[in-house]
Design a protein around this nucleic acid. Structure first.
Length: 602
DNA sequence: ATAGGGTTAG
């Protein structure tokens, strides 16, 4: 009677022992898989797991799967996934996320589509992953579909899912859609705030990005991290806001994020766009292993300062250090050649793009070259080049617009007419094309044609939006419309100041031209010199000027809209009379690590 | 238990 019981007990005990042995073995494998950081060990663990029969154990198999995903061996991950007899939601999500990580969001979405057929239900992890795939793809339609589905599943309140939704709408240029999700979130963290701030910053709504950052700083006790600060600095760049940029730089230093390469890259760009190339250089030189991004920022920054030679030096330095340039880098290099009149070097670089670096020049590169040829008067070559390019819709208008302004500059009515036709056909900047062509006719003394064109514009109800410029004073922007001095409260005073400034600058050697800008470094370490620069190359830069009271002032120009120095003077005058009577900027400044940064405004 | 979100240059 006792035998069977004993036998049962023994067999139960041995089952227990076996089970715990298996568990221990599985546990050991999992520990090793967790720490595994190279492919050879992963493969060896794979065979051990296979031999021990633990691959049938989905949990263990998932660990192995994630190991391959971490090592970016997506094909190995895929093969393993196909061998798992009962893949669960974690197996699916891991593989989908692996495809997203290696930049194949299409396959990720495709797999997601196959899930219902395999009776696996997506969860919040899966949704967060596939939404990221949509944002990489900029696929708003699919993104919205998935958004609708997850609402049905009840993941609308999940923090991570919502953050990735905010990001997805932002990356798809639907900023208001992003804001709607953000506003409905029940709880938010640094990531969700960063997603929303970035959505603004990347969609030319920098003011709102800064506003939201202020709200974050007031409402949340969390400190901004390097993700958020990189976005904020970038918002300041696109706004040309030096003071806000310095405030952000202060926050970067205080938070100990000045060693982050990404933040440093953003700062390099910000200082360059705000007219302080010295600071860009200082920050750039502190980056131990600069990637292609900060190099490109410096190259573009120097190019916009008219320092073409410096751009080209940076470019060859980068090549010498074995850093691979990309298409953006070449936009900067060609831009540098164009703005410094280095035509032969420019053509050489265009050729080397594909020959040496395997990058196929695109419309934007050819546009730089057309600009380069056009500026130096080689208009026939520029025209031939423009005609030979199969320009895509978006960049075609820029190409012909570039040729148009060059023909106008050199009085080539014939080419101006052709370029305008192309521009009008492209259905973009139509009003600008009409105005530019009419101005070309006027320049060439063909008044009748100019008049006819203006009548045609009226008949077709083509209206040119008035051009505007803006300046930043402290943390406020002031907008001025072209040719309208009265839009500024003290119009007459401004005009008087303008005249005074103009004559003072002439005394210092300024040569008036159609594209001049005042350009002065006003930082404490380089005080006082007003440089009268008259080259076209400054048309793409920002101006700085010392004021009678010794303060720091800077101007920013809307470069496409107004290109004459008159407009620049108008802005400077406005700053002089508005800012320095009222405020003392220097009060907020302090020095840290050799930088003059600002105190907290938010 | 294993899987998920945000950053820089044109």
């Amino acid at each position: 009677m006792r035998q069977p019981l004993n036998r049962n007990l023994v067999s139960a005990l041995s089952r227990q022992t076996h089970l715990s042995f298996v568990q221990t073995e599985a546990h050991n494998h999992i520990q090793r898989l967790r720490n595994c950081s190279d492919f050879v060990s992963a493969a060896s663990l794979h065979s051990k797991v296979l031999k021990s029969g633990l691959l049938a154990h989905t949990f263990t198999a998932n660990h192995l799967l994630n190991c391959y995903v971490r090592l970016r061996r997506i094909d190995h991950a895929r093969n393993l996934f196909d061998e798992i007899s009962e893949p669960n939601i974690v197996s699916w999500t891991s593989l989908i996320s692996g495809y997203v990580d290696v930049g194949r969001p299409g396959i990720a979405l495709c797999m997601f589509g196959k899930m219902p057929g395999c009776s696996v239900m997506p969860n919040e992890f899966t949704f967060a992953t596939v939404i990221k795939a949509c944002s990489i793809f900029s696929d708003l339609r699919t993104g919205k579909e998935i958004h609708a589905r997850l609402e049905v599943f009840g993941f609308r309140v999940n923090l991570v899912v919502c953050s990735s939704l905010v990001d997805m709408y932002g990356k798809c240029n639907d900023v208001d859609g992003a804001r709607r999700v953000f506003d409905l979130m029940g709880c938010r963290n640094v990531v969700s705030w960063t997603s929303m701030i970035t959505a603004y910053a990347q969609n030319a709504r920098g003011d709102e990005a800064l506003q939201l950052f202020r709200e974050f700083s007031h409402l949340m006790s969390d400190r901004p991290n390097h993700f958020m600060l990189a976005s904020i600095v970038s918002a300041c760049s696109s706004l040309g806001r030096l003071v806000s940029g310095k405030v952000a730089h202060g926050a970067v230093i205080r938070g100990g994020h000045d060693l982050s390469d990404v933040v440093a890259s953003a700062l390099v760009d910000m200082y360059a766009k705000c007219g302080c190339l010295d600071y860009s250089d200082k920050i750039f030189r502190r980056i131990r292993y600069p990637s292609v991004v900060p190099y490109t920022s410096m190259i573009v920054g120097a190019a916009k300062f008219g320092l073409g030679k410096l751009s080209l030096e940076l470019f060859s330095e980068m090549i010498d250090r074995g850093i691979k340039p990309n298409d953006v880098t070449f936009v900067g290099v060609l831009h540098a050649c164009s703005h410094s009149g280095l035509v032969d070097e420019g053509l050489e670089h265009l050729k080397s793009m594909f020959d040496k670096h395997g990058i196929l020049p695109s419309t934007k590169h050819y546009t730089c070259v057309v600009d380069m040829l056009g500026r130096t008067g080689r208009l026939d070559e520029a025209y031939q080049l423009a005609k030979s390019i199969q320009a895509d819709q978006n960049f075609g208008a820029l190409l012909w617009g570039t040729l148009l302004s060059a023909s106008r500059l050199h009085g080539r009515v014939d080419i101006a007419v052709e370029a305008s036709k192309q521009l009008i056909d492209s259905n973009q900047q139509v009003a600008g094309a009409y105005v530019a062509l009419s101005n070309t006719y006027i320049l060439a003394g063909e008044w009748d044609k100019a008049h006819n064109l203006r009548s045609e514009m009226k008949r077709n109800q083509v209206r040119k939006e008035p051009g505007c410029s803006w300046i930043e004073i402290q943390d406020s922007s002031y907008v001025f419309y072209a040719g309208d001095v009265s839009s500024c409260a003290q119009g007459t005073e401004v005009v008087n100041l303008l005249r005074e400034l103009e004559s003072r600058m002439k005394e210092r050697g300024y040569v008036g031209g159609s594209n001049g800008l005042v350009f002065v470094d006003v930082e404490e370490e380089a005080k006082g010199e007003i440089l009268g620069l008259h080259s076209e190359r400054l048309a793409l830069a920002f101006g700085l000027i010392n004021t009678p009271k010794g303060g720091t002032v800077r101007i920013m120009k809307n470069l496409r809209m107004c290109t004459d120095c008159h407009e620049a003077f108008k802005l400077i005058s406005a700053i002089v009379e508005r800012d320095f009577v009222v405020r003392d900027v220097n009060r907020f400044h302090h020095f840290k690590n050799g930088f003059c940064i600002c105190g907290d405004f938010w």
